[in-house]
């Protein structure tokens, strides 16, 4: 599987470290159901079929976190973006 890094271009998946689900949001620790919410946030994962947004870290390249949208059945890459959008606007 190759991942089209927005900075480096097409690279083999072995250059990347996989973190997992990029759709989760850290719960509010002050909420009354915080213990339940953190249990779900930390341990519970869906196993979706088809398109899935997930974090990949380009450890052996540009060292940026990416959000990759990948089809879990075919490994087709449907989209790649930096996890933290750059605030830099660089003229072309």
């Amino acid at each position: 599987m190759r991942i089209p890094c927005p900075y480096c271009g097409s690279r083999d998946a072995h250059e990347f470290a996989y973190l997992g689900d990029a759709t989760l949001t850290r719960p509010d620790p002050a909420a009354p159901d915080a213990a339940e919410a953190f249990h779900a946030y930390t341990y519970l994962r869906e196993n979706p079929e088809g398109a899935h947004r997930e974090y990949w870290y380009h450890a052996n390249g540009c060292r940026r976190w990416l959000v990759v949208t990948r089809n879990t059945k075919t490994h087709e890459i449907l989209g790649v973006e930096f996890a933290r959008p750059s605030t830099d606007e660089v003229p072309a």
């Binding site: 900075y7 480096c8 390249g61 060292r63 940026r64 830099d88 660089v90």
Partner: peptide, 21 residues
């Protein structure tokens, strides 16, 4: 250039290794 390119002015050579680096 903010890209994986090598740029040289004869004395210095700069190579892009990541965004802004």
């Amino acid at each position: 250039v903010d890209a994986p390119k090598a740029m040289s002015n004869g004395v210095l050579t700069a190579v892009g290794t990541g965004p802004g680096r």
